[in-house]
Structure formats: C-alpha cells, structure tokens
C-alpha cells in the first residue's frame, strides 16, 4: 500500500527560516504558506493551534476577504515535512486573518 510521504513534494519549495512573514489576509486565492506566528491573545492563538493552525502548519488559501478560508494541508517543521492534498478547511474572520502571520511558499 503506498503511504503518504513525509517529504515535501517537488512543487513545494520549503519556506526559508527568517523569511519576512506577512498577514494571512494579504494572500491571494490559491497561494500556499507556512504559519509562522499568531499575534493575538494567548487564548485565541491556542484555539488556532488546536484547530491545526499551529506554527509550521501548511495552509492553502481557498477564499480571501471576509471570511477568509484556508485548508490546512500538513506541516513543514524542522524534523518533518508532510504535505497532503485536502485537509481540514478553516474559516476565519478577516480580523483573525490579519493577525496570523505566514511565510509564502508558492
């Protein structure tokens, strides 16, 4: 049985550590990014992490504006790179998307 690879696919260029992060709200539809930082109250950040939007989470923007919708498609961590098609779909208010900072990867 073919298993899900832990390597990032070729189309996925890993994000460069230290690359300037931008607000998720500035991304266009179809862009992919890695979550870097949640500049918001600790409780809100913890909820986002629990929902899958933790640091290093790979996201793809499905819808921009209000609300913003992303799919969480894997992680891009120091020890593990895993990318899948699909994944959980999360809707955020624009205010939340403005406080979630990501590094664009494609």
């Amino acid at each position: 049985m073919p298993t899900t690879t832990l390597e990032s696919p070729e189309s996925h260029a890993p994000a460069v550590p230290g690359e300037p992060a931008v607000a998720l709200s500035t991304l266009a539809r179809g862009q992919r990014a890695v979550v870097r930082e949640a500049r918001m109250p600790a409780d809100d950040a913890a909820l986002l992490r629990a929902m899958g939007l933790c640091d290093c989470a790979l996201v793809t923007v499905v819808r921009t504006g209000e609300p913003c919708v992303v799919t969480v498609t894997g992680v891009d961590g120091a020890t593990c790179r895993c990318h899948r098609v699909g994944g959980c779909r999360i809707g955020l208010s624009r205010a939340m998307a403005q406080r979630l900072f990501v590094s664009i990867i494609s």
């Binding site: 298993t3 899900t4 690879t5 832990l6 913890a46 992490r49 629990a50 899958g52 933790c54 640091d55 290093c56 989470a57 894997g74 992680v75 961590g77 020890t79 593990c80 895993c82």
Partner: peptide
C-alpha cells in the same frame, strides 16, 4: 512549541 511537536507527531502517525 508543544502544539507544533504534537502536530508533527500526529502527522507521523498519520503517515
């Protein structure tokens, strides 16, 4: 960091 480590663990188990 803990959440990220947990997430990585989950991805590994998933794989």
């Amino acid at each position: 960091d803990g959440a990220t480590a947990l997430r990585v663990w989950a991805e590994e188990v998933f794989a």
